[in-house]
């Protein structure tokens, strides 16, 4: 951790935690250009946040500054419950900035920055989907059991949709050998898994789509996040070079458009449910590269226009 980060954290701690009475310590402040709801009561301008405070925005973005140094934003018409180390996004869109040890939880998924200056936008869409756009730095996404289901690089956006528990994993990527272990890096989620099962040997070095089930009793090699017992292997192309790179670039490019595009469009842009035939399924969650939608970069809904805070 850099010196200025330490200094900032100390300053923030001094700023928020020196409450000398028995009152529970504040965890930060919430600031908005207008009205918002704090614990179901209407507030204008700014307020103090406590562990578990519920913040619901109206037509303007609310900015949340936490004692840990984490900086969060809630877009217009969004709602979240704020804790010292995480935000539970309940509605709309949230953005996480500069929060190395902070996470956003949404519909059972946990979105965690990998670096200190990471910034990501998380949007709930439809009834079940979660869109995550990594704006700066990379983010890890874990399912409700703590299994890594995506590693999102800066500029990429992925939409997730939890599936039935029995849904088999389905991943696509280049099958490589690492010592005596078969590894595959999924092109959509960028997650490395170890594979076991019949039919892998003859597909070594090819771009494949595999179907299988995670084996929680097996310990994967250190590079992999989980072990998958493969039930079917389908070759997509011989060799991995250009086709795999093209596919990866395609996914990245699509997400790049998302990250570069203007905000707007309806929630859940991308249409209906994530199709099991076009995406990765990992850890019981379907994942697809997202294009556009509310998780895209640009201003958050409700962030436009000049403020009403001024009393001029």
């Amino acid at each position: 951790m850099r010196i200025e980060t330490v200094q900032a954290a100390v300053a923030a701690a001094m700023a928020f935690n020196l409450v000398a009475w028995a009152a529970p310590p504040a965890i930060g402040t919430v600031i908005a250009n207008g009205a918002f709801r704090l614990d179901n009561a209407a507030v204008t301008g700014n307020a103090t946040l406590f562990e578990g405070s519920s913040v619901e925005t109206a037509s303007a973005v609310s900015r949340l500054e936490l004692a840990t140094g984490a900086r969060l934003s809630l877009a217009a018409s969004s709602k979240g419950k704020i804790f010292g180390d995480h935000m539970l996004l309940e509605k709309g869109i949230g953005q996480l900035d500069r929060a190395e040890n902070f996470r956003v939880e949404a519909r059972g998924l946990s979105i965690q920055p990998e670096t200190e200056k990471s910034s990501a936008r998380v949007a709930l869409s439809g009834g079940t989907r979660v869109q995550v756009a990594a704006l700066v730095g990379s983010f890890r996404v874990l399912n409700s059991r703590g299994v890594l289901i995506a590693d999102i690089a800066a500029g990429r956006a992925i939409e997730f949709e939890p599936q039935a528990a029995s849904t088999p994993s389905k991943l696509m990527g280049c099958l490589v050998m690492h010592g005596v272990h078969y590894l595959l890096t999924d092109e959509t989620t960028n997650v490395v898994v170890e594979l076991g099962g019949p039919g892998l040997d003859k597909e070594k070095g090819n771009r494949v789509e595999i179907t299988g089930a995670m084996d929680p009793t097996a310990t994967p090699v250190s590079d992999a996040s989980q072990f998958i017992r493969v039930s079917a292997v389908k070759r997509i192309s011989k060799g991995c070079g250009s086709a795999g790179a093209a596919a990866a670039a395609g996914a990245g490019g699509a997400a790049g458009k998302a990250a570069g595009g203007a905000a707007g469009g309806a929630a859940g842009a991308g249409g209906g449910a994530i199709s099991a035939t076009t995406v990765a399924i990992i850890g019981g969650v379907a994942a697809a590269a997202a294009v556009g939608g509310l998780a895209a970069a640009g201003k958050l809904p409700g962030q436009g226009g000049s403020g009403t805070i001024s009393r001029e």
């Binding site: 020196l18 409450v19 009475w21 009152a23 504040a26 402040t29 204008t44 301008g45 700014n46």
Partner: peptide, 14 residues
């Protein structure tokens, strides 16, 4: 708003 902000500020200050 300024009064409310100060109330919050001094709350946080204890």
């Amino acid at each position: 708003l300024p009064a409310w902000t100060l109330a919050n500020f001094y709350f946080r200050r204890g």
